[in-house]
Each structure stands twice: as structure tokens, then as C-alpha cells.
Design a binder for these strands. Structure first.
Lengths: 118, 118
DNA sequence: GACATCATGTACTGTGTAGTACACATTACC
DNA sequence: GGTAATGTGTACTACACAGTACATGATGTC
């Protein structure tokens, strides 16, 4: 957890709250179906980040990127995991190769894949 | 778990055993540091697949591809997960893009990345 | 045919995960 | 200034995970 999950969520929520009082701990907690005390503890990092499903609800609620939020929680989206498990040797090789490469190279690759004729 | 983890391990171990009696449940269990009864249950699918670290030892012991064995167990290697977490938006986008693509395209991409000038 | 080795059944355990339930003190509003 | 909403502390819980410990019965081997 290099950048703390909890504080990030808190900051984000407080920011939304400035414009809309519906973003209190209690009301957000209620909307994502957890106890307020639990969300409070999560935001202060007193307990570990929630489950994937709760994180996804939180991401939607706060308008955050779910993959980024999951990453901050030390998790990887289960649909990505499933994609990797479907072709383990292939994806494993690709990811291990790419992880040594500079950001720019990966970005270029993503773009090429996206609009290239693969 | 599309292809059963346990039976695959059992088959593999029995195969090795034909040429070397040191590949009994007991002895393999001992070498990877678990109880024989536990390995037995794992191979028969009576219990869920072991932890990542135990699977890795098993893979080495049986000369199997660790990524494939992990995949069969419904897991993704933690070093891959870490690589994804390091650049979540990038990898998430790439993997989601690639998962719809045919095997051949991914394979070609892997090769190009491997020996290309990225 | 005794002894070792083997696979497996039964019962139990410690640790982690992902929270709930509720009381309490504080703050904000009308 | 009462009441309504808020954040947080304490205590507890249900369930899953990843096994261990030990006994039993079968098999093989010398």
C-alpha cells in the first residue's frame, strides 16, 4: 500500500462534501451498504481496505477509477485475474516482459493495440 | 476451476513415480513441507487448492509451469498482480483490450514485445 | 509373515477477512 | 436550546483459508 487507500477515500469524499452534504460518512456508508463506523475506520486506515465489491461501490459513489482504487487497496480486479487465468503462459510472459519497460512504451503499446489492426 | 487442479497434480505425480519411487504422496508431501493426508486431499479435490507458496513448491517439485498451476487453482501469481498494481490504468486497459483478441494476436504481441525495440 | 511404507479418513486448530451492533460524545440546525 | 445528524470507540461475529495430528487399513517387500 504505497499510497494509503483510506486517506485517499477520505480526501475524495470530503471534497465532494463541500458541494453536497450528502457525502457524509454516514450517508455514503448507507449508500454503499456498510456500517458508518466501518467506513470511518477504513478511511482512517484503522482496518484493512474493504472487499472488492465494496471498493467497487465506493469507486462508483466517489467517481473514482475502480482499477486505481483497487490497486491502492493492494488488489487486482477479479475480471482481469480471470482474463489472465484464461491464458496464463501468454499473459504471464507479456506482463513480466512489460513490467521492466518504461511507462511510455506500455502506453504506446496500449494505444497501438486499441486502434491497431490486431 | 475449469480443469481440476487436484487430478492434474495427481496425474503428473504418478507419472513421475513410474520412473522414480520417490514420488509417492508421502515423500512429495514431505519435500514440499505439508502433511501427506493434506496432499492426498488436495489431489483428490476434497479440499481447495493450497496457498500460492505451496503451489509454487509443488510446481517446482513436479516440473510444471507455475503460472499454469496457479491458474488451475484459480489464482494469479502475486508478482504479476504487483506489476499490474504498479500501473493499474495502463495494464487494466491493455488486458481488457487483449482478452477479446484471438490467441494468435496475443502470441504475436508477446513475441514482438520480447524481441522488438520497445 | 513381520515390518516398513503407503494412501486416506476423521477431528481439530490458528489466523485472516470483512465486516455488524451499539453506545457515546460532538456538532449543526431551526 | 432541543433535536437531529455526525464521526468514532469498543466489543463481537460468521465464515473462509490453510493447513496439522493422529489413527486406520491396505500394500509391498525381504
Amino acid at each position: 500500500m504505497q499510497v494509503a487507500f483510506g486517506p485517499y477515500v477520505r480526501q475524495r469524499r470530503e471534497q465532494l462534501r463541500e458541494r453536497d452534504p450528502r457525502y457524509s460518512v454516514r450517508q455514503v456508508a448507507h449508500r454503499i451498504s456498510v456500517e458508518p463506523s466501518y467506513l470511518s475506520k477504513v478511511e482512517r486506515g484503522e482496518v484493512a481496505p474493504p472487499s472488492e465489491s465494496t471498493i467497487l461501490k465506493l469507486a462508483e459513489e466517489l467517481g473514482a477509477d475502480p482499477d486505481v482504487l483497487l490497486a491502492m487497496a493492494g488488489k487486482v480486479s477479479s475480471d482481469l485475474q480471470e482474463a489472465i487465468r484464461a491464458r496464463p503462459e501468454l499473459f504471464a510472459a507479456l506482463i513480466r516482459e512489460l513490467k521492466r519497460m518504461p511507462e511510455k512504451a506500455v502506453l504506446r503499446l496500449v494505444r497501438e493495440v486499441r486502434d491497431g489492426d490486431w
